[in-house]
Design a protein around this nucleic acid. Structure first.
Lengths: 122, 122
DNA sequence: CTGATATGCAACCCCGATGTTGCATTTAGT
DNA sequence: ACTAAATGCAACATCGGGGTTGCATATCAG
């Protein structure tokens, strides 16, 4: 109901999240962290082909996007998924989808007398 | 119910979609196409700072990701949003979110006697 | 046919993302 | 104190994304 359509402001945060998700290594990390527990970097790096330092950067990207949080405990740096870390992305997609579903409905409604083969306009 | 947890296969398609969404210009295009109608390239390029050729490539990326479809009509190439183009991304995020919500619940359930300050394990 | 419009294609930049190696540093264990 | 483990930091290489320019090609309007 209070669902205003997408504006340029919404893009800023969404871009960061989607960019963070747009990498197979990072998706693998997310999947690896899907158990809800926290894991040290070295452990996460063991399952993946890249170096530990590479994984460190990927985790930094994910943290920057708000998808993951890291905390230093002892000599190790443990990372963990943030419960609502994907909220931003989900909301964006939901709103985008409903926005143009509405638009399509409006169009269909507007020219629902002679259904020619094309749905284009402008 | 029949919601199996995320596997490596799921990542393949998702990466393409998220990578496509991880760019402000492309999000702007998506927003611009949010009216549900089809627009020629030149028209889309008018609203944006980049060159027409740049926009052409962005549209190709979006099309590759299944978010947009293009059709040649006369001398112009019109692009349009695909109604279920964001389905892949939404499903992925939904499943990922619910997956580790469950995991967190299971953890909370497992050690719900002595709530020490940390929720970490392993 | 002629000129303007709308694209496609290809060659080039440029810079940041991704990945590596090497070394310094902090912390745990004995 | 000494050694091994877990990281952090910095320098470097490379590759692809994003952008541009220039030119060829269709297509529409007169």
């Amino acid at each position: 109901m209070a669902e205003r359509s997408l504006a340029q402001d919404d893009d800023r945060a969404a871009v960061v999240v989607f960019a963070a998700l747009g990498d197979s290594t990072r998706l693998a990390l997310i999947r690896r962290l899907g158990d809800g527990r926290s894991h040290p970097i070295a452990q996460l790096a063991n399952d993946l082909p890249q170096t530990r330092q590479a994984i460190t950067r990927h985790l930094a990207v994910l943290e920057q996007a708000g998808i993951v949080t890291g905390e230093h405990v002892g000599r190790e740096h443990r990372y963990q998924l943030r419960p609502d870390g994907l909220r931003t992305g989900r909301d964006y997609l939901d709103r985008a989808a409903s926005q143009w579903d509405d638009a399509l409905d409006r169009l269909r409604h507007f020219l629902d007398d002679d259904p020619t083969d094309r749905g284009d306009t402008q």
